[in-house]
Simulated scan of single mutants.
Amino acid sequence: MTAIQTQAPAVDQEEMRRARSQRLERIGRWVVPLAIMVLAIWLWDRICVWNEIPQYILPRPGVVLQTLYNDAGLLFGSLLVTLKITFLSLLLAVIGGVGLSVLFAQSKWVEMSFFPFAVVLQVTPIVAIFPLINIYVDNQTAKLLLCAWIVAFFPILSNTTLGLNSVDRNLRDLFRLNGATRWQELWHLRLPAAMPYFLGGLKIAGGLSLIGAVVAEFVAGASGQSSGLASRIIEAGYRLNAPRLFAALILISLTGIVIFLVLSLVSHLILRRWHESALKQEG
């Protein structure tokens, strides 16, 4: 009886220590990056002051924020143009990547025949492909959309294909023993099993679609009121308007972070009730 009583407080202390460690980890996950970010911004400001760096070379953070506020109409209008290309290319990448992955899963011959072409598109720099797109495509929006789609397409295709081919063989044999057709096996077994892989590829493709849209705008050299953020960066660079250039860069970075967080939340909401990775996060 005494041994049991002595053991119980030790277990309770261990549980309390573990809970305290988890609580500190949760707090530190947000506090530490924010503290480092604040320190980096402070150092940026001090470097500008200590070295008396001109505004057209390296503006202070306050000047950048003021420019972001003053030029909000222009910059956010350009952001909407970039976001339109980003989300359209991501949507096309999802439709094309998942559709082609399903075909690959149904036929090894189709996968062996067409997957190398997808790899070629992925490894070829978009700046090398764009001159051909510029020759064959007349519409400016279609050019940008095609460039961004090429960048975002491969992660969806490769991850979903990997997920469809990673189903447990015993489960596949069980489906076949019970007389399931290939499409029933695909719908009820392979697609649910591939969902975590697809969502992982979607998070990667979300950032790549934004990068692809910005790079496409740089390569295309689009200008005018209907142009995206990349064109504002080019314009600000020509005019030595460093505050606007930095404001546009910060806007692009924040947009990429928001896209990643939203897609991560979508992934968690879909997987939280049944997949091991989301269950661990909740625990």
Rank of each mutant, 00 (worst) to 15 (best):
R23V: 01
R46M: 01
Q140N: 14
Q22I: 04
L100D: 00
P125L: 07
A220L: 01
L157G: 01
E282Y: 07
I156D: 14
R18C: 08
L251G: 03
W109S: 13
N134Q: 02
I85A: 15
V102L: 15
I211Y: 12
V137T: 13
Q55S: 12
T2V: 09
G224L: 10
R172K: 11
Q22W: 06
A148R: 07
L177H: 14
L157A: 04
R176T: 12
V102W: 13
L199D: 12
G224S: 00
T86G: 03
I204S: 10
S277F: 11
P243N: 03
G73D: 12
L251E: 06
P59Y: 04
L249R: 04
E217N: 10
Q55R: 10
D71P: 02
P196W: 05
W30Y: 14
W42G: 13
A93G: 11
S226H: 09
L164I: 01
H188Y: 02
V215M: 04
I233E: 05
A220H: 06
A222E: 13
I257Y: 11
L208F: 12
A222I: 06
A35H: 01
L177I: 15
G228W: 11
I156S: 00
A247T: 12
L65Y: 08
K108M: 08
G228A: 03
Q225S: 05
V49H: 12
L132P: 13
D168Y: 03
W274E: 06
I156R: 07
Y136A: 14
E52G: 07
S277R: 08
L34G: 01
T181W: 04
F175M: 11
Q22L: 10
L265H: 15
I95C: 05
P9M: 00
T82C: 11
G28R: 06
C147N: 03
E25P: 00
P192W: 14
P155H: 11
E217K: 00
E15R: 15
G237M: 03
I57W: 07
F198H: 09
A72H: 07
F117G: 10
I135L: 15
P61Q: 03
H188W: 04
V63K: 10
F260W: 13
A193M: 08
A194P: 06
A213E: 14
S267M: 09
W50H: 07
S113R: 03
R46K: 12
L34D: 11
E282N: 08
G62V: 04
Y56N: 00
L88H: 05
Q13E: 13
I259C: 08
Q13M: 09
S107E: 05
L83T: 09
I257E: 13
G62S: 01
A216G: 15
R273V: 09
V151K: 09
